[in-house]
Nucleic acid binder design. Structure first.
Lengths: 116, 116
DNA sequence: CAGTATCCTCTGAGATACTG
DNA sequence: CAGTATCTCAGAGGATACTG
């Protein structure tokens, strides 16, 4: 129970957070996990994101091998984003976050009733 | 598979991220999950954090009911931080992040060998 | 010991307009 | 359609010094 054990827990968590932290990466991956999408569809389905942030975050995700970008030479071009096999290894994190968020919302709502 | 379904996935995730996002909250909770700690012990065991950030993040975590602060009127005072019962509901997220971080590190290291 | 107080930097993120 | 280019700013985060 000393610092070394603590580090073996915290350091991998920091590795993970370095890659997926921020306001948008997990929401984007969540949308893409449901099914692959084109840029504009993502822009529409991830509420509140700007084109600039979406573009930047998709690049980060692609660099880290979590998302694959495919360009179709239609006219005009269409671009499709999909979660890679490696990206799907994040599913347990995504599900855990979603489960907790759902329960948390229920908790907050019930507390509001009591407080007010 | 339309936007509504997407929202039911993304909105709870944003609720969760609003509370635990940032560089320090999950590492702090991880340290406290192993066992409760005093301020200075946390400062030592969460690598790289400053006293200011630790203080701020602990306040946020306390406000959200994830951490409990207990003051002992020793001389000088000692303060103990512990994860609340509600805070422990985050364990699945913490474990998922840690598992993924560990596997990711293995992947990165093996890729480095191939590349170099 | 358990924090505050200052000061500072940097970047995550938004708004708006524009392009191949 | 799928992005870029600017501009802007709040606040996350860090360094250092100080206090009850």
């Amino acid at each position: 129970m000393k610092s070394e054990l603590c580090l073996t827990h915290i350091l991998p968590i920091r590795d993970a957070l370095d890659i997926i932290s921020g306001k948008w990466k997990i929401p984007i991956l969540t949308a893409l996990c449901i099914h692959k999408r084109r840029f504009k569809e993502l822009h529409r389905d991830v509420p509140g994101i700007t084109a600039k942030m979406l573009s930047k975050e998709l690049k980060d995700l692609e660099i880290n091998g979590l998302v694959k970008r495919t360009v179709y030479e239609t006219m005009p071009v269409s671009v499709e984003y999909a979660v890679t096999e490696y990206g799907h290894t994040l599913n347990p994190i995504i599900f855990a976050l979603r489960d907790w968020g759902l329960k948390h919302r229920v908790k907050i709502l019930s507390e509001d009733k009591v407080e007010v």
